[in-house]
């Protein structure tokens, strides 16, 4: 035994890599190789060249869908922030019991299947659902349809993604040293001034982490906008699926996927330059 331990100690630098090897191998095999194939298809299908990229970057439909995708992702991120920040603040400034109860509620919705939550929104927002009923009861003679609009798809996506935002902000808020707030107060910072100059900057990493996660995940959303959104607002993932399923346009679909990936990486790169990517993990 002693021999083994000393051997391990001697190879201290190798050990973490050994532990990492299965995962690295797994990722290489089941992520990088298929990704490489997708990249290959984008420049070889139906013939070798950059035709697909030219189409994606110049076609009005594709441009419109990409702009809509980024707009939607930004909108959802902002909404998640507006909902998540006050909630995280509340969790941090209430009793431990209440904070746990709120956390439990958030994680419970988080554990529920994606599709179930989407269908639940269809029931809630549908013409015969409680929301329309309530609107009619309080005096809307002819309540507007809510389902199949940008509003309903945004609402559902915010619901699905808000936990990422809340967890990130909450974990950062929890780590703020109360002494900092007290000393700020002793220097005469109160109310909005205290919030703007002390509290908000201290929670900025949480905001940035949450926003990047929500934004990036939202870029790839597929089912929710298709089932809940309006026909005119399409997301890139939906269009990629449609291109392949309907037209067997594997090359064009691949090119769109690669463009989406590159833009996502650019967002992460900007974030990494500004805040450091390691912050995403804790």
């Amino acid at each position: 035994m002693a021999v083994t331990v000393s051997n391990l100690a001697g190879r201290k630098n190798l050990w973490p890599w050994l532990l990492l090897a299965p995962l690295a191998l797994y990722l290489a095999l089941f992520f990088l190789v298929p990704l490489g194939q997708v990249a290959m298809m984008s420049v070889t299908e139906p013939r070798v060249g950059l035709d697909n990229y030219e189409k994606v970057l110049t076609g009005t439909l594709y441009r419109r869908v990409f702009i809509n995708t980024f707009f939607t992702a930004a909108l959802v991120t902002v909404c998640c922030l507006l909902v998540g920040y006050p909630l995280a603040y509340l969790m941090n400034h209430t009793t431990e019991r209440r904070a746990m109860a709120i956390l439990l509620l958030i994680t419970m919705s988080f554990w529920t299947s994606f599709l179930v939550r989407t269908y639940a929104w269809m029931v809630l927002l549908g013409n015969n659902g409680p929301v329309i009923w309530l609107l009619a009861t309080i005096g809307f003679a002819d309540p507007p349809g809510i389902l199949f609009t940008r509003f309903s798809s945004t609402l559902a996506m915010v619901h699905i993604l808000a936990p990422y935002m809340i967890m990130n902000i909450y974990s950062v808020m929890k780590k703020i040293d109360p002494a900092l707030i007290r000393s700020a107060e002793s220097m005469g910072a109160y109310g909005t001034s205290l919030f703007r100059h002390v509290y908000l900057p201290l929670t900025a990493p949480g905001i940035a982490n949450g926003s990047v996660l929500v934004f990036v995940i939202c870029l790839g959303f597929y089912v929710t906008p298709v089932l809940l959104g309006s026909p005119t607002e399409q997301m890139a993932a939906g269009l990629i699926g449609h291109q392949i399923e309907q037209f067997l346009a594997f090359g064009l679909g691949s090119a769109m996927a690669i463009v989406l990936l590159i833009v996502t990486l650019i967002v992460l790169w900007i974030y990494s330059r500004r805040f450091g990517l390691d912050r995403l993990y804790g």
Partner: peptide, 14 residues
């Protein structure tokens, strides 16, 4: 049908 479907898709998105 292929081209018409493509056109239909663009028509839908506008």
């Amino acid at each position: 049908p292929h081209e018409v479907s493509m056109r239909f898709d663009e028509w839908l998105a506008t």
